[in-house]
Amino acid sequence: MHRTGTTRRSALTATGALALGAVLTGCGDGADSRSASGGADAGTASLRAGTALRAAAARDSASLLSRYEQLAAAHPVTAPGLAPMGAAVREHLAALGGPPKAASGSPAPAPPAAPTDARAALRELAGEERRVADSRAAALLTAGPELARLLASIAAAGAAHAYLLTELAKEPPA
């Protein structure tokens, strides 16, 4: 006896073929409609936003590096403890694309003068590192994947620097 009609195997095959066709058609239409309706504009806007985030992060790193250098110069006793962290900030600046370009030829604002007390200056720098790390962590929500990974890494390093600076401020002067 030969079975006539629809078997389970033929029903599954037909359903799979229809689903595959729908998926392939959906993928093709979505890509075409995105490019036709301004997908390039969205890509350009995303690129501009990423560039702006990177430039802001580079400005923050340049400011932090300046603060490290200023603190080491004002309080030479802190220089050995600050040197590795300053070098890391210099590397962060390089990873972000180097020093930011000054807008309209105006120089970047000078950092505030370091306090005369080395411990107070270290605590102030720790606070600045914490603030910058927090702003970079907040920027992760709008950054693209590659920039988000870089910012997350730099934010984690900044949080570690803040901790180390706080501990360095607690040490007795040498």
Rank of each mutant, 00 (worst) to 15 (best):
S61L: 01
S135G: 05
S61G: 12
A110T: 06
A95Y: 00
L96P: 06
P112E: 14
T78Y: 05
P111G: 05
L71Y: 03
A79D: 07
S104M: 04
P109S: 09
A73M: 08
A120R: 06
R90L: 13
G86E: 07
V132E: 03
L64Q: 03
A49V: 07
S104N: 13
L64D: 14
K101G: 10
L122V: 00
V89R: 12
A55Q: 10
A42R: 15
E69T: 15
G97R: 12
R136L: 07
P111H: 04
A102Y: 06
G81K: 08
G98K: 02
V77N: 06
R48A: 13
A83L: 15
S63T: 04
S135M: 11
A40P: 00
A55R: 08
L125M: 02
A103D: 11
A88Q: 07
P109E: 03
P109C: 11
M85Y: 12
L96W: 00
R90I: 02
A40D: 13
L71K: 00
L122E: 05
R67W: 04
L125S: 01
L65K: 01
L71I: 05
S66A: 15
E129C: 08
R131A: 10
R48Q: 08
P109D: 07
L82Y: 09
E124L: 14
Y68A: 03
T78L: 09
A56T: 11
P109Q: 09
V132H: 01
P109G: 06
A62V: 13
H92V: 09
P99H: 10
A57I: 04
A56M: 01
D134S: 15
L53H: 05
A118W: 05
A57L: 00
A120V: 06
A118K: 08
A73P: 00
S106L: 06
L122R: 04
K101N: 07
P100C: 11
A120T: 02
R123Q: 09
A108F: 10
R119H: 15
A114D: 08
A57C: 04
D41F: 12
A79E: 10
E69C: 00
E129G: 05
E124K: 08
A102I: 03
A121G: 13
P111N: 04
A108T: 03
P111Y: 00
R136C: 02
G81D: 11
